[in-house]
Every structure is written in C-alpha cells, then in structure tokens.
C-alpha cells in the first residue's frame, strides 16, 4: 500500500519537526467521557462511550457518516441542548473534572471555555474586526485598546493577520472560503477557550486552504486542546496525536494516531482505514 506509507511518512515528518516526545504519557486527561448514552428522540445515537481526551493534544474523531462523531463533539460544549429531542440516557461528560451536564452549569459559560468551529464557515455579516471581537462584545467588553489587541492577537493566532490587517473594516464575507474558516477560528480564539472543537473544518475547503488550516491546527495545539471531527483519514493522520474511530454510535477504537494507522487493533478500524468501507 504505497499511499498508506506515503501518508505515514508524511506524518512522521511532521512529528519530527515537532520536537515533543510521544504525548501519551505526558499529558493529563482534560475531557473525560464515561458510560455515555445519547438519544435523538427514541433513536439512540451514542452507545456507552468511554474516552479520555488529553490536554494540549489534537484528538481526531473519524468514522463513516452518521456514526455519531459530530454528535459526541457537540455534546462537549452542549450545542446539542439546542435540539429539542436530544437527551442524555446515561453517563456524563466531565471537562476538567466538572460534570458539564450538572443542572447548575451555565451552558453559555461552558461554551466560552469550549469553543467551536463549524463545518460550514459562518462568519457574521459584519466587518472582520467585529467578527473577531463579537465574543468579547457580548461579554460587555468595549474598551477600544483591549479589542484592538484581541483582534491582532487572534488574527495572528489564526494565521490570518498578514492577509487582512489592512482591511479589517471589510466584511468577513468578502474573504475566500479558507480565510473565512480561519476568521471563524480567530473568532473562537478571542474568548480564550481551553478547548477548541472543530466539526469537519476543512470539508468545504480546497486543498491549499485545507493545508493552511491544518498547519494552523498544528500550531494551535501548543496552547489549546483540540478535538477535530473529520471525514478525511489522511487529515486525521496528518494533524492528530490521537484518533478515535466511531462506528454506528459506538467508539470502536481509540489510540495514538501512529499506532492506529499503522497497526489497528480492531478489524473494523482496519477495514475503514484501508478504505474497504465507509
């Protein structure tokens, strides 16, 4: 399988530039999901999920469409609250040890700590500047110097500053698809989250824009814990430290990405990774 080898080689190269040792032992668990069952109405979408997501790592969720990976992602910042028929059957999701589904938890505060980037880039129809500071403005921050700093810092953080610094007043919608997606990342960074959830952030982007976003993900993991849902296995192999494979609402296998792609323990994982289904 030459393609596979190529992919893995690529991955090793990326790791080589990143001097850090294998992340497994070093990083503590930030998100802990235990015995988690989740329903849409009567239909069970997630079955008995148990996983630990480590701090300052990139964790990729892969699996065929409808396997529950996006659903689980949306459970981590309670975006599923917005769906009327969604409910939790059993188990809990703990972020930093706190049960986020505790009735005392304010979901809006949680979402400031757990940011999200969506599949379809969705900048507000406002200026680039206003897009970035939106999360700050709704917290009542209106001091010009604070906002200015945040804009520069976040756009730099999202590798977009060079491209847009001279036209912060133009509409966020005037940017190209890839730029829009990076603007959405910058916007998410502005509220200073600990965790960034990314729901197929590159699925609507061309290869060049995808490469830029992937590069960005790589640089972001020094400061943020990133969970990324992706359809694209090469992408998972390129950007993630650990990979979780879902199938039919169940977590089939979760392991360090290298190991997962090189020698998956589970037959289904192997079949999916090698492209035999999905």
């Amino acid at each position: 399988m030459p393609v596979m080898e190529d992919r893995l080689e690529n991955k090793t190269r990326m790791d080589a530039t990143n001097v850090e040792s294998p992340p497994d032992e070093k990083n503590r668990s930030l998100i802990k999901i235990s015995d988690f069952d989740f329903f849409y109405g009567d239909k069970q979408a997630l079955f008995d999920i148990n996983m630990d997501i480590a701090e300052k790592e990139v964790t990729a969720f892969i699996g065929p469409s409808g396997c529950g990976k996006s659903t689980l992602l949306r459970c981590i910042n309670r975006m599923n609250d917005l769906i009327e028929i969604a409910r939790i059957g059993r188990g809990d999701v703990r972020v930093n040890g706190v049960d986020i589904y505790d009735p005392r938890v304010d979901a809006t505060v949680l979402r400031k700590r757990v940011g999200m980037v969506f599949q379809k880039s969705n900048p507000f129809p406002k200026s680039i500047y206003e897009n970035v500071v939106y999360g700050l403005r709704i917290q009542g921050i209106s001091k010009k110097s604070v906002l200015d700093d945040a804009v520069e810092k976040c756009l730099k953080g999202a590798a977009l500053w060079e491209e847009v610094s001279d036209r912060l007043d133009t509409s966020g919608l005037s940017l190209s698809g890839g730029q829009q997606q990076r603007l959405c990342i910058a916007r998410a960074l502005a509220v200073e989250p600990d965790i960034l959830l990314m729901d197929e952030p590159c699925s609507a982007l061309d290869p060049v824009a995808t490469a830029k976003v992937e590069e960005l993900i790589h640089s972001l993991k020094n400061d943020y814990t990133i969970v990324i849902v992706t359809h694209n296995m090469q992408q998972a192999a390129r950007v993630s430290d650990r990979t979780a494979f879902f199938y039919m609402g169940k977590l089939i296998e979760m392991n360090a990405t290298d190991q997962m792609f090189m020698s998956p323990n589970n037959e289904q994982t192997e079949a999916y990774i090698s492209g035999r289904f999905g």
């Binding site: 917005l82 507000f124 916007r187 509220v191």
Partner: peptide, 10 residues
C-alpha cells in the same frame, strides 16, 4: 449557522 456561531461563543 449564524445562531450556532453566536451561541458557541457563549
């Protein structure tokens, strides 16, 4: 998407 983005920002 606009509503989601806003809600996701807290």
């Amino acid at each position: 998407g606009l509503r989601d983005a806003s809600l996701a920002l807290g």
